[in-house]
């Protein structure tokens, strides 16, 4: 197959990224810097959370079965927030799947390999994308309609209080690199097309796709950030950080699943099962 040149692959990935992800860094920054006519509703304690649930429930849980919504109201706040996180994750996994199909060569891979790449890649990609919705004080939620403070998330009871803080710490380091959406599109594609996931059958084909993305990423970063020549190696280091973040996250979720009365969405069960 014909190898697309650097600029066209970067452009293609950027367009697919803007098409498939409902939130992106440029949009999120508008909300986070207060440049919208309707600023996000700030959730910083139980009262504001309850108020937000009334206001945002249709946005947060637009696709949720009505039975789930009614039982949700009777559950404790930590369990409700855990469920919100799950639904947001499911939506992002769906978006990531569509984005992956737009990566040249991905859709032609063996279907089992596509599944494996998504299984291991989606949470790493999700946490890289989540950083766009974070600043040091909190996290943008519900398509920019709400902002949950970092302190409130830390104040939840254990183990739920341990859920988001490592993601904030990663996000602060990651956001310091000042990537834009065109950089992130290639970075997410590189996360997904990774030749060393367990159980892949056609490693060499995936490595060829990965090499081509990494090559384009390096050249794109040099032209998009000419003053930061170390950006590419710094970004490669983040791949290892993301893997560690996902390993710890998977352990925490499995722990919550065992010890708490919190069921896990079937799609997320598929991803976490026998992961690491």
């Amino acid at each position: 197959s014909q190898q697309p040149d650097t600029k066209s692959l970067a452009k293609q990935m950027h367009e697919a990224y803007l098409k498939h992800f409902h939130m992106n860094k440029a949009k999120a920054r508008v909300f986070l810097t207060g440049k919208t006519s309707t600023p996000p509703f700030v959730i910083h304690d139980m009262d504001t959370l309850q108020h937000a649930e009334q206001k945002l429930i249709t946005q947060l849980l637009g696709n949720m079965a009505s039975g789930d919504v009614s039982t949700l109201r009777e559950r404790e706040v930590e369990a409700r927030l855990f469920l919100f996180c799950q639904y947001a994750s499911v939506a992002t996994v769906t978006e990531l799947t569509e984005f992956a199909k737009a990566v040249p060569g991905f859709a032609a891979l063996d279907l089992n390999d596509q599944v494996t790449l998504l299984k291991y890649g989606v949470y790493e990609a999700l946490f890289a994308l989540l950083a766009s919705c974070m600043n040091k004080d909190g996290l943008l939620v519900a398509h920019g309609g709400g902002f949950i403070t970092r302190e409130f998330l830390k104040s939840l009871r254990k183990p739920f209080s341990d859920m988001m803080e490592p993601k904030f710490q990663f996000a602060m380091r990651f956001n310091a690199l000042e990537l834009d959406d065109s950089d992130l599109a290639l970075f997410v594609a590189a996360i997904i097309c990774c030749g060393d996931r367990p159980g892949l059958s056609d490693v060499s084909q995936i490595e060829r796709i990965q090499e081509s993305i990494i090559h384009v990423l390096r050249l794109h970063l040099l032209s998009n950030h000419p003053d930061n020549t170390l950006l590419f190696p710094k970004l490669l280091q983040k791949l290892a950080d993301l893997r560690q973040l996902v390993t710890e996250h998977a352990e925490l979720v499995q722990d919550i699943n065992k010890t708490e009365d919190a069921s896990l969405h079937p799609l997320l069960q598929e991803i976490y099962r026998d992961m690491y």
Binding site: A65, T94, K101, K119
Partner: peptide, 21 residues
């Protein structure tokens, strides 16, 4: 792999099919 990842398979094979939430 297919048996254990039915929803991922479905998402990969059918772009118009939303995840059954």
């Amino acid at each position: 792999l297919k048996e254990k990842h039915k929803i991922l398979h479905r998402l990969l094979q059918n772009s118009s099919s939303p995840v059954d939430l």
